[in-house]
Every structure is written in structure tokens, then in C-alpha cells.
Amino acid sequence: MSFLWGVVWGVAAVLVVAVGAIIGVWWERKVAARIQLRLGPQQIGPAGSLQMVADVLKLLVKEDIVPDASDEPFFRYAPLAVFAPVAMSIAVIPFAAGWAPFDASVGVFFFLAVPSIGVLGILFSAWASHNTLSALGGVRAAAQMVSYEVPRSLSVLSVLVLAGTLRPVGVMDAWQWWWIPATFVGFIVYLISSIAEMNRGPFDIPEAESELVAGYFADYAGIRWAVFMMGEYGAMISASLFGAAMFLGGYHLLPGALGIVAFIAVASLLMTVIMWVKWTLPRMRQDQLMEFCWKMLTPIALVQLLVAGVIAAWL
């Protein structure tokens, strides 16, 4: 029985990510267009809202190209290895009072650990493509994603210290409004390192389209490429939801059933901020990125953790 529920939840998570990605792509195209003096999608549906349906249809019927020199099984299934952990991580997010799809006692740890498996998928795709640019992108991605795990986890830890539990539902139960100012610096660190974690601009050096063409997924086409994109948008969705819950109070912002609306709204706002940053800032260089991680974000996250610890001990 619990297995059946697992399947249901799994399908639901994939659907949420897929639909979220479709809406997210449309929204990103609109946001980017506004930033770039353009209008964005116009023709299909009201305000181009059905553009993504058409795009998905096109991607579905595109030829599934597997390069001759590639390592075929790895090449074929690497996109799933990127996408699956992202979809899994959504399961532990506390959507409403006392409820998360998967209420794990180590949920926060689960959320931080599982998406890191995605780096394996990226490495698989990079090496399996048998392409120097892809390989470089894969190596860059591995270095970047492993490094940015550190400030990201440390910044979330500061909330956990205040809450005294690893259970996301428990964290939300214990939530107090003054946590927002107390962990605000940690929230900024979390947001920046999440952007780096999902390889989006200004940290998109693994896929750097002006240098590595598209990095690790340069050789992908059609639906396999779409799965990579869904993975990226899924990571954006899950990181925004988790950040909105842990650092900004999630459903506590409005009372009752309106809480979940407020939660989704705040998460959407975070997504928009992530898009805004991407379309405004230039890309950093690999060495600058690493310096920024280890010399800026990590110490700041540690100081934030110290502050949170002092507060928790004092209370």
C-alpha cells in the first residue's frame, strides 16, 4: 500500500515539476523580454501563454539524436539522473500546517542531500557526450555544485539551530516571525548559493553558452534536452519553495487556507528574483566563482550560524 502511495506521489511530483517548468519558462521569457526591451511570446494563446505547450509538443516529436561517439546508456539516462533528484526533493517541502508530501524526520537533510546527486547526472552527460566542451562543462559543474553545497547547507543550518529539529514540518511549527530578520543574511546566502547550485546566471559557467556553447548538454536534443531544462526549472521551483518556507515563514504569512496561497506567491517572487538576476548580470569566471564561494559566502554563512547559535543558546 505504501508502495502504491509512493508511486502516486512520485507521479504527482513529476507533474508538479513539469507543469511548474512550463509555466516557469513562459514567465521567464516574459520577464527576460521586459528586461531586454522586448515583448516576449505573443502569438499563441493570450499573451503567448500557450507558447510553451507548442514548444513542448515540438520537443516531443523531435528526433532523438544520440551521437555515434557517445557512451550510449549513460548518454541516454543522464538527463533522468539530473531530473529525478530534483523532483524527489520537492516531497519534503511543508506546504501547509503539519503537512508535507513526505514528512521525514530528517527532511531538511534529505532536501539538501538529494539534489546533490544531480551532479552525477551532469558528470555522466558531460563524459558520455564525448565532447571536449561538454567535458569541461561537466568538470566545472562538479566543482561548482560540490563547493556551493557548503554555504547553502550552513545557511539552512542557522534556521535549524533556532528550530531545534531537522523535520521541515517541525521547523514550520516552531516558526516565529523574528526569525526573518535574525536569519536574513543566511537567506541571502541561501539564495545566492541556490542559484549557483542550479547553474543559473550569473553562475551558469558549466553551460556558459558563449564559451562552452551549452556545456554538458551541448549534444542533447529534443526531449532529453527538455528533461535537462525541466531539471533546471524544477531546481528553481524547489529551491524557491524551500527558501520561502524556511527563511520567510511559508504559510505563516497569511492565516488559514490563504497561507498556502501566500506561500506559493512568495516562492514565485523568489523565482522572479532569480530570473531577474540571471538576465541582468554578466557571468562570473570559474576562479572568481570559487573565490566568491569560499572567501565570501562560506564565512558569512558561518557568522550567521554563530549568531543563530548565540540567540538559540540565550533563549
Binding site: 527576460a32 528586461i35 531586454q36 526591451l37 522586448r38 546566471g201 550569473p202 551558469d204 556558459a208 558563449s210 538576465w279 541582468t280 548580470l281 554578466p282 557571468r283
Partner: peptide
């Protein structure tokens, strides 16, 4: 020069 560094919006301006 912006697009090469990843800031594609400058190109549009």
C-alpha cells in the same frame, strides 16, 4: 562584449 561575459541584455540595448 556584454553577451560574451553572459550579460545578454546589454546586447538588446
Amino acid at each position: 562584449a556584454g553577451a560574451d561575459t553572459g550579460a545578454t541584455s546589454v546586447f538588446m540595448y
